[in-house]
Computed example of a mutant assay.
Amino acid sequence: MGKSTLLNALVGEKIAATTRKPQTTRHRILGIVTRGADQLILVDTPGIDTRSEKLLGRVLNQAAQAVFADTDAVLFVVEADRWESGDAQILEMLKQAGVKKLVLAINKVDRLERKEALLPFIERLQGLHAFSDIVPISGLRGVNLEPLVDVLQGFLPEGVHLFPEDELTDRSQRFRVTEVIREELLERLGQEVPYATAVEVESWKDTPTVTHIDAVIWVERDSQKAIVVGKGGRMIKSVGTAARHTLEQMLERKVMLRLWVKVREGWQADVDSIRRMGIDT
């Protein structure tokens, strides 16, 4: 649906992993948008997977739902001209949670083959729920983002800024490094293997000219390790090279990135392992 792409676009910097695969987000990530006297605290939740039977999936679903009660408004992002059973289930979940201020963002309007299909789609969704507002957007192309921010600002309570004006997120640079590496894994691997991976930064050392980063990619089985490493180490090399280029742009300095792949059997079914990966439980 592109909610992490939207978060990055609103903040103006890459702070969350974005891929073409669903359920990319695993962490609750704050994005901070300061516009004069107003400060929006945007919470990117893990994608809700209504089909997941694994402990990790249930943990991520709970983390997403826990946010509902602590927000002034909920932004529900769906894809233009595409309403699926999962979207209907999430809408029902939001209703049951008692969410009163629910804004619908219809994303990827730039990809509509027939622009005239947008209005009937909006009318269809208006019949499903009395949304506080509906805003067609494109997070990737930056279409209609200012009107969306204007709508969200209308829900802000009076109060002081919670963060300095130049702060964009509550997440550390180490976390953002793991997101960059995980994004490259998701983009390059098949359907199942990338979801069995997790990334942990083991060491970080800044020198006057280079930042040295060592990170571990965790998998659940030896067979998955072989896929991530690739024949002759080609896959892990391509992941490392692409991630390093992104990190050098992000950190604005030269980066030496070293990656290892290790096996931790059944980590997605173990609470302690999930916590070690920095995922809230």
Rank of each mutant, 00 (worst) to 15 (best):
K21P: 02
V33Y: 11
I29M: 09
Q23G: 01
L91G: 01
I90H: 00
T24A: 00
R51V: 08
E79A: 13
K108E: 13
L112N: 06
D72K: 12
Q96W: 03
A17V: 07
A69M: 14
L56T: 04
R114S: 09
L94I: 06
L104D: 01
E113S: 11
W83N: 04
K21Q: 04
G98S: 14
E13G: 04
L118F: 12
D38G: 09
I106D: 10
L118A: 12
L119M: 11
I90G: 02
G98D: 12
R82F: 02
K95Y: 08
N61W: 02
T34N: 14
L104W: 03
L91M: 02
L94M: 11
T19W: 01
I48A: 03
F68A: 04
T24R: 00
H27N: 14
E92C: 10
R114E: 09
K14F: 09
G57S: 08
A37M: 13
R82Q: 10
N61G: 13
I32Q: 15
T18G: 06
K95N: 15
L119K: 06
L118Q: 13
G86R: 01
K101Q: 15
N107D: 12
K95E: 15
K95H: 12
T19P: 01
V99W: 07
T19A: 01
T50K: 13
L119R: 07
R82L: 07
A97Q: 10
V77Y: 00
N107W: 06
E53K: 13
L42K: 05
G57D: 09
L118N: 12
S85N: 10
P22N: 11
Q96K: 10
D110H: 02
Q89H: 05
T25S: 11
T71L: 06
I15L: 05
R124M: 15
V77I: 12
A73S: 15
Q96E: 13
Q23F: 07
T19V: 01
N107V: 12
G12E: 07
D87C: 01
W83F: 07
A80F: 05
I15H: 02
I41A: 14
G12N: 09
W83Y: 11
V33K: 15
K100D: 15
L55H: 10
A63V: 13
V78F: 01
F76I: 00
V59P: 08
Q96G: 07
V67D: 02
K115Y: 00
H27L: 07
E13S: 10
V77S: 04
I122M: 13
L42N: 03
G57F: 05
F68E: 03
I48R: 00
L30A: 10
V103N: 06
E116Q: 14
K108L: 13
L119G: 01
K14W: 05
D70W: 14
V43S: 04
L104H: 05
D38I: 03
L94Y: 05
F76K: 00
G12I: 08
A37N: 15
L104M: 08
D38R: 11
E123V: 08
I32T: 15
A69V: 15
N61S: 08
D44A: 08
V74M: 05
S52K: 08
L60N: 02
L42E: 04
R111V: 08
Q96I: 04
G36M: 12
K14S: 14
I90D: 00
R82Y: 01
E123K: 14
A64N: 04
R114I: 02
V59C: 11
A117W: 02
V33M: 15
A64Y: 00
T45H: 14
R51D: 09
D81W: 03
